[in-house]
Amino acid sequence: MEEFDLQSLLSSSEKMLIHLLQSYAQTNDIAIFVLGNDDHLQAGIFGELSKGTRLAQMNQMTDLSKLSVNKYKYNLEYADAPLRIASINQRVGKICVAKDIEHSSGLDHLQVMQQLQKQAAYLKYLVENVSKLIIKDRGIDNFVIRYSLDVNDAIDELKDSEGEALQQIKVMSTSNSSIISAIEYIDSNLDKRLTLDQVSSKVYLSDYYFSKLFKRETGLSFSVYLNARKIQKAMILLKESDKSINDISANLGFTRLSYFSQTFKKYTGYAPTKYRTEGNK
């Protein structure tokens, strides 16, 4: 199990990336910051921040997961771009740019947003290419944290209640862009036999980090969520179609009808045949 150490990368080579970001922020009169995949601040906010502004206050925060949806509440404009490490083909976080916008200033929000989007795209290119040089010079092993399998994590996986999962996914919400993309991919491919490795690679995260992030953001392990969505769709098909149970099982990526029936009963309390005739009346 391993995870990329973004903080070490930012601080390496005499803080080259930090100095570059600080200089760009001051020159362009914006704030720049880097968030990890968990939306936590990695090395402070770069740029000259006026005391009392929202951006200055945010410099004291670590979790900025709600920033993109609350930008108008904070009187600022904001843009970001994902950061990927080519040598391991993983997303490691995102580069973010922001600017305070006072209601009385008369600044055009759309124009500011478009400019910030261009700056975020440029900084993504800058950081990824400088990172490539740093990693080539120092070696990827200097920026990878390796973990042994945590027994407590394995136990946590067993604590998920399949019986409550169907209710939980109805009210589940997350603002993490990687998890949103993963959920969209899962929901579009319920007919396939998806694995943790496949889905984590689609959002450019290590399987270890993706597993922990998914559980933190959704409250469910990847496998429980995946099966809950498959069973949720099976419930609809059983009630609203005349497809056979065997066809429904196959169409949802189950290789054996017996396993589908066992899983369905775990999540709903009914066998598929009984649910079709008696359930949800």
Results as ranks from 00 to 15, higher is better:
274 K>R: 14
135 I>K: 00
65 S>N: 11
183 I>A: 01
273 T>E: 12
56 A>K: 14
7 Q>F: 01
184 E>W: 05
92 V>A: 02
150 D>T: 02
227 N>P: 03
118 K>F: 11
240 E>M: 09
175 S>D: 13
45 I>S: 00
192 K>M: 07
61 M>T: 09
54 R>L: 00
66 K>Q: 10
72 Y>W: 13
102 E>Q: 13
137 D>Q: 14
251 N>G: 13
174 T>C: 01
118 K>H: 10
207 D>L: 00
109 H>C: 08
255 T>V: 12
245 I>Q: 07
276 R>Y: 07
233 K>N: 09
199 V>E: 07
118 K>E: 10
146 R>H: 07
16 M>R: 15
172 M>E: 11
160 D>A: 12
184 E>N: 15
212 K>F: 07
78 Y>W: 15
259 Y>A: 01
114 Q>N: 13
14 E>T: 12
2 E>W: 07
26 Q>G: 00
26 Q>M: 08
216 R>H: 13
32 I>T: 10
77 E>K: 01
195 T>V: 05
69 V>H: 05
41 L>Q: 15
74 Y>G: 00
134 I>H: 11
249 S>F: 06
263 T>I: 08
187 D>R: 13
55 L>N: 04
125 Y>P: 01
123 L>A: 01
33 F>A: 10
57 Q>P: 02
246 N>M: 11
9 L>F: 10
203 V>Q: 06
25 A>S: 06
122 Y>C: 03
165 A>P: 08
114 Q>I: 04
273 T>K: 14
189 N>C: 04
152 N>I: 06
58 M>K: 09
71 K>N: 14
49 L>I: 08
123 L>G: 03
149 L>M: 09
239 K>H: 09
62 T>M: 10
156 D>G: 04
271 A>P: 05
48 E>P: 06
13 S>P: 00
266 K>V: 00
82 P>Y: 07
128 E>L: 00
88 I>E: 05
200 S>I: 02
95 I>K: 02
199 V>Y: 06
176 N>K: 10
221 S>G: 13
164 E>N: 10
28 N>V: 07
37 N>W: 08
153 D>C: 01
155 I>M: 13
39 D>R: 13
79 A>I: 03
262 Q>M: 11
246 N>G: 10
32 I>E: 08
242 D>K: 12
251 N>V: 01
155 I>K: 13
252 L>F: 03
35 L>N: 05
